[in-house]
């Protein structure tokens, strides 16, 4: 009975579906989180071509043969990169990107990570770092005697020193975009890595054509839609149950065969 294993592939697929959904719901208030979606594909088909498929003597052929599919497989779990809401925090070093792009982060293991969660802090020596203390690339250091820090749309970091009237520029934030954002690899801590599927990063200053603008005092919330996730979860659970019912029925049919005399 092929239907036993076919239904088992269905149960595995739905289990993965629920795992992806539960991770989305768990990250409902993670800043910069992009919701994931599990995508499924049908597995290969076994053709049982029949001698009897010729329907008449003058060569007419019934167009469809008997094809039996053997189940379903998970094809991909990809991120949906639409914009999350922009939530005002009033924090000087909170930055959201309105549009496309990722901040670049120096990883302690070497290499560059990318993030849209722009809730940054200052390190003891005044450097702009993430919540985990990883420095933002290119490095920006805020002098300790700065009384006001402004970051404009195009990512220029301007400070006002005590007693001075003019603002002075202490750095320029840069952001990266990718040809295929869905191909980025998530590694946790709100970070993603470049992969062969995502393509190489294209670095530019914010506000250029094709790049988003930086908004100071805001963070980007996750783009998870709870109502959608919950309905998806209900659907996945029911589909799981139906597949298990198929296994049960196939088992009973096999029981019947065993009893043939």
């Amino acid at each position: 009975m092929r239907s036993l294993t076919t239904a088992a592939t269905g149960m595995l697929a739905q289990q993965l579906n629920v795992e992806v959904i539960s991770n989305n719901i768990a990250n409902l208030s993670t800043s910069g989180y992009k919701r994931k979606r599990a995508e499924f594909q049908d597995l290969l088909y076994q053709s049982m071509e029949r001698v009897g498929s010729r329907s008449s003597d003058n060569g007419d052929i019934t167009p469809a043969g008997v094809q039996i599919g053997v189940g379903v497989e998970a094809a991909a779990v990809y991120s949906i990169t639409d914009q999350g809401n922009l939530q005002p925090t009033g924090n000087t070093y909170d930055m959201a990107i309105n549009g496309k792009g990722y901040f670049q982060i120096d990883l302690p293991t070497g290499g560059t990570g990318y993030t849209r969660a722009g809730s940054f802090q200052l390190s003891p020596d005044g450097q702009l770092v993430t919540n985990d203390g990883y420095p933002v690339q290119p490095g920006i250091t805020i002098p300790s005697d700065a009384v006001e820090v402004t970051i404009n749309d195009s990512g220029e970091v301007l400070i006002k020193l005590d007693g001075q009237i003019e603002l002075s520029n202490v750095g320029q934030l840069e952001i990266s975009t990718f040809p295929n954002e869905g191909g980025l690899e998530s590694i946790g801590q709100n970070l993603v890595l470049e992969t062969e599927a995502s393509g190489s990063p294209i670095v530019s200053v914010p506000g250029q054509p094709g790049f988003g603008k930086v908004l100071q005092g805001y963070v980007e919330t996750s783009n998870v839609d709870v109502v959608k996730e919950i309905t998806d979860m209900i659907q996945a659970q029911r589909a799981y149950e139906m597949n298990s019912k198929v296994i049960e029925t196939s088992d009973q049919m096999m029981g019947t065969i065993t009893n043939i005399r």
């Binding site: 009975m1 092929r2 239907s3 036993l4 076919t6 239904a7 592939t9 269905g10 697929a13 739905q14 579906n17 995508e39 499924f40 594909q41 049908d42 008997v66 094809q67 039996i68 599919g69 053997v70 189940g71 379903v72 659907q235 996945a236 589909a239 139906m242 597949n243 198929v246 029925t249 196939s250 049919m253």
Partner: peptide
């Protein structure tokens, strides 16, 4: 039992993008 296999494949693919039932 052949028909059962087709039904099992339909149900396994109840969430597959653009799957056409058989």
């Amino acid at each position: 039992s052949r028909q059962m296999e087709v039904v099992a494949n339909n149900i396994a693919n109840a969430d597959t993008t653009s799957f056409k039932g058989e």
